[in-house]
């Protein structure tokens, strides 16, 4: 009797675990079959109530050794992002993006107020002193968002079972993000692969060029 009760509990837990543990493992490669890091993968439910934000609403993009860290940051609509300057020189952070236009004039340390990203979209950010400094903030319309690591993989976990529109974006990809959308019905775990065509990176070069003086 007692063993039967325990078995039933375990069975319910397993079933519950199965039904709640849906996840998508995204694999992103480039046109040469090489893994792509810094690709944003977003899953948006096709139906049902809008997903509730289950991520920290405060985030940071650092400035270290005259570079933004990380190169790509994914946040959810409504997130507040701080831009700590960890160099011992001053930076001037800005964006022209329609999704968020802002400017943090020449500063050191961490500005008191974060920048609130209240519209979905892609927000390239730069430094007006050091033109090579470039990073991207992806403002997602779903909390199911993550960025591929160096092996070109990332897992979106804890997704409720259902049907999702899953898409991929990368700063150097050819074509549109919409063209990458896949409709995926999740029951448990699924691996999905994308192959992106990447362009060369064409941000202002940091390495010295003869006869040029950079920002000086």
């Amino acid at each position: 009797m007692r063993a039967g009760v325990v078995g039933a509990i375990v069975a319910v837990m397993v079933l519950a675990g199965v039904s709640d543990a849906a996840e998508i493992t995204a694999v992103v490669k480039d046109q040469h079959g090489e893994p792509v890091a810094d690709a944003v993968v977003v899953a948006v439910p096709r139906s049902g109530p809008p997903p509730r934000v289950a991520r920290p609403v405060r985030d940071t993009v650092d400035q270290i050794d005259k570079e933004f860290v990380p190169y790509v940051k994914a946040v959810v609509v409504g997130a507040s992002v701080f831009f700590p300057n960890k160099d011992n020189i001053r930076h001037h952070v800005y964006s022209f993006s329609p999704a968020k236009t802002f400017e943090l004039p020449l500063y050191s340390g961490t500005p008191a107020n974060p920048v609130v990203f209240d519209r979905p979209g892609i927000v390239p950010i730069g430094c007006n002193i050091h033109d090579w400094m470039l990073a991207y903030i992806y403002v997602a319309d779903s909390p199911y968002v993550a960025i591929t690591a160096r092996p070109g993989r990332v897992t979106l976990d804890s997704l409720p079972p259902g049907t999702y529109a899953v898409r991929v974006w990368h700063p150097r990809m050819e074509g549109t993000e919409e063209a990458t959308v896949r409709s995926i019905t999740l029951a448990t775990t699924q691996e999905v692969a994308w192959q992106l065509t990447l362009r060369p990176e064409l941000r202002p070069r940091r390495a010295p060029v003869p006869g040029q003086r950079g920002y000086r």
Binding site: E67, R205, R206, A207, P208, V209, P210
Partner: peptide, 16 residues
């Protein structure tokens, strides 16, 4: 005329 190859973010090899 010349060309410049970035070796690292802070160095380059140049011919002209």
């Amino acid at each position: 005329f010349g060309m410049s190859f970035a070796m690292t973010s802070k160095s380059s090899l140049n011919i002209g």
